[in-house]
Design a binder for these strands. Structure first.
Length: 721
DNA sequence: TGTCGCCATATTTTT
DNA sequence: TATGGCGACA
């Protein structure tokens, strides 16, 4: 392969990064500046020019998707599959190390991963056992606390509890950790922390990995938390080279422990040089100008300004909607015209601050007959029926797994009630043994009523029989046998309605997913089932159907990071929504919101619409929000305001009056709402409410003829009356 | 064991 | 406003 291929077609800065001599390096990569390209080409460069072996390369990302993309693109660039190269997520790679050295990490061979939902359930059980009021101490909050501590690398012994509240949290943390350790379970944060501790405590092991991974690359570095930073630093040792790629302006995960400061820390700790990628290949000049202007209002920045050789493009349109319904209709009508001009639905995205905002939009899209796809939400492997099935498989492969035991002991219902169960739990606690063995013990002690005893005996027999039956089978047969043998399939088949049908389908899908699963040859799994179980926890089931259907893409601003769309709508850009109400309280949160806005804007390639509603129904109450401060931070020359202006025929305080409406989008024939409103001329409306005076007055008007319940809050320009 | 009604609750999410 | 969790009840 000709090496020049690797740097041809790159801009100067990209080339500088790709072809840099072996060293520590920060690539400060702005949105749309081709950072993945740089990473991929750098890997190829290391192999081709520096003659690095695939074996010596270690590349870390945050999501499976990013890891997968990187691997594919490296292989495409090198035109050959690369084995031996470690490309994966922080969790995936840590987990891999833990599997390989489970003994040293003091984990059972069949250790399993607890997802956030399992974690909360586990804590909920502990709280009950510890007699802690769940009302006062929600399990979710405690789970959050524990994960946060682990993200900081803190074990219970490292924590000083100064007040009673923290003492309680600490007690639960301790109990929780104890329970996990005994059951052979690790939560997500534990994977990282455990791996870090393992490497700290096993110098030989650490040296082995350090000597292997000569070339480390890290993506989205601004999202690393404390333990991830420590882990990387440990693996890097003194000799290895690390290239980190990130963008401080796109740091939007501070609230879950990400530390932007890690970038600066890296520069110090690794005496690295910085390369800035500022040329943008995605957006129009206007969008970039506005984004640059916005982000400049943040104080703590490394400094970066995006530019493009491309066109100016259209101004950013800002629509002031009456309310969220009007906002949705506006968005939908613009999408309709986009579609009518021969564009694809999937090239257009609606971005919002929180998930609840999607509802009104969905309804409007549905009404217009436009297909949409919502990102996020329940993932395949997180669904109830799937987790039930997996819990059986987990219990079969590890009898100590209390979380799995609790989940399936009475699913499907087999007459094991709370009483019997608490009996077992008590026994387990007193004897400090896993629930499974406690159940057996209780049975032997014959403390139970006949019926309960039979039920438990049957359950134990069931699991043991399944275990016997499936050991020799192929993975998908194992799943099938378990799902059917456990009675889960029958249970969900009996469930009425659409839901039940979908669940049965999902279970079947699970069986087929087992069939498609390939056990990674270079990882240390004792069986395909082990591998599959880990896979289901670490990879929550992306790549479901309908992904490629032509549909409007809907997602939160957070999940939009890394994506791009020709047409983008950002909705609900109002004070109190975005920036969100709660971001006013903590320091630094406002800047993070601004970065989020920056992320959103820079998703747009050609056209960006931003909308805000003057009134919005929120938690059952009508709320009035002013336009977001972020809008004021956009340069005037970059924006075009679309606003329905109401002119009232005569000053009124109440009663009927007539109003005429002018609309900036009048010329746009595709704008249904505008047309409708205009043609209706708002003949007569009833004033419902009147407040203030002068230019700031507001009237609330009901126009019966425009639609049933259409409530309009319009700014009356009294001076023009 | 399932259902009803009451109550609190109400960002952002990947692994 | 809607939703989900929980206790009470049949």
């Amino acid at each position: 392969m000709d090496v020049s291929e690797l740097i041809d077609g790159l801009n100067e800065k990209q080339r500088e990064a790709v072809a840099a001599p072996l060293s520590n390096m920060l690539v400060l990569a702005g949105a749309g500046s081709g950072k993945t390209r740089v990473l991929v080409h750098r890997i190829a460069w290391l192999m081709q020019v520096e003659h690095a072996s695939a074996y010596s390369i270690f590349a870390v990302t945050f999501t499976n998707k990013a890891a997968k993309e990187m691997r594919t693109r490296v292989e495409e660039t090198l035109r050959s599959p690369v084995g031996g190269m470690w490309i994966g997520t922080f969790h995936g790679l840590s987990h891999r190390i833990l599997r390989a050295h489970h003994r040293e990490a003091k984990l059972p061979e069949a250790f399993q991963i607890l997802d956030s939902d399992d974690q909360v359930r586990m804590i909920r059980r502990l709280l009950k056992a510890m007699n802690i009021d769940e009302k006062k101490w929600p399990a979710k909050q405690i789970a959050w606390y524990i994960s946060a501590r682990k993200d900081e690398g803190q074990r219970p012994k490292d924590i000083q509890a100064y007040d009673v509240n923290e003492q309680l949290l600490l007690r639960v943390y301790t109990a929780y950790q104890d329970a996990c350790d005994r059951a052979g379970l690790v939560d997500f944060a534990e994977i990282l922390l455990r791996c870090y501790e393992l490497l700290c405590q096993q110098p030989t092991l650490l040296r082995h990995y350090q000597q292997r991974f000569r070339h480390m690359l890290v993506d989205e570095f601004q999202d690393t938390n404390s333990i991830q930073y420590q882990w990387l630093k440990l693996l890097a040792g003194n000799e290895n080279n690390m290239m980190i790629v990130g963008d401080d302006d796109q740091s939007i995960y501070g609230w879950r422990g990400a530390k932007v400061e890690n970038i600066k820390r890296f520069l110090d700790d690794f005496s690295a040089q910085t390369i800035r990628l500022e040329q943008n290949y995605r957006s129009t000049a206007i969008i970039l100008k506005a984004s640059n202007a916005l982000i400049q209002n943040n104080a703590e920045r490394m400094g970066k300004s995006l530019w493009t050789e491309g066109d100016q493009g259209e101004p950013i349109s800002i629509y002031a909607a009456f309310n969220e319904l009007d906002e949705s209709r506006f968005v939908v009508s613009k999408i309709r015209s986009w579609l009518n001009s021969g564009n694809a639905l999937q090239d257009c995205a609606i971005l919002y601050r929180n998930n609840a905002q999607s509802r009104v939009l969905e309804e409007a899209l549905l009404q217009e007959g436009l297909k949409y796809r919502i990102y996020g939400g329940m993932r395949f492997f997180e669904r109830q029926e799937i987790k039930d099935a997996l819990a059986y498989l987990r219990l079969i492969s590890n009898r100590q797994d209390d979380a799995a035991f609790e989940r399936v002991i009475n699913t499907p219902a087999r007459g094991i009630g709370d009483k019997t169960l608490s009996h077992i739990r008590d026994c387990a606690r007193n004897e400090s043994m896993p629930l499974w063995y406690a159940a057996k013990a209780v049975l032997e002690q014959k403390h139970l009523a006949g019926r309960a005893a039979t039920a438990i005996a049957r359950f134990i027999e069931l699991v043991e029989q399944l275990d016997d039956k499936i050991t020799e089978l192929e993975l998908s047969e194992q799943a099938k046998t378990t799902i059917e043998g456990s009675g889960l399939m029958a249970m969900y088949q009996a469930e009425k309605g659409e839901k039940g049908r979908a669940r049965v389908e999902n279970l079947e899908e699970l069986i087929s997913a087992c069939g498609q699963y390939e056990l990674p040859i270079d990882e240390d799994f004792s069986s395909p089932l082990q591998g599959f179980l880990a896979y289901t926890s670490l990879e929550s089931g992306e790549g479901q159907a309908d992904e490629h259907e032509d549909a409007v893409q809907m997602m939160t601003l957070h999940s939009a990071k890394g994506l791009e769309f020709p047409l983008v709508f950002m909705v609900g850009v109002e004070e109190g929504m975005f920036p969100s109400q709660q971001s006013h309280e903590e320091s630094g949160r406002l800047e993070e919101e601004r970065r989020l806005c920056y992320v959103g804007m820079t998703r747009a390639m050609d056209k960006l619409y931003i909308s805000h509603a003057e009134s919005r129904r929120l938690y059952g109450q009508e709320k009035h929000h002013s336009p977001s401060r972020f809008l004021r931070e956009l340069p005037e020359e970059c924006i075009e305001e679309i606003r329905i202006k109401t002119q009232v025929s005569r000053p009124v305080n109440s009663g009927r009056f007539s109003a005429s409406v002018t609309h900036a989008a009048f010329e746009d024939s595709g704008y249904n709402l505008g047309e409708r409103v205009l043609h209706a001329k708002f003949g007569a409306g009833t004033v419902l409410n009147y407040e203030g005076s002068g230019a700031q007055s507001r009237i609330q008007v009901n126009f019966d003829d425009v639609g049933s319940k259409w409530l309009v809050t319009a700014y009356a320009r009294l001076q023009s009356l």
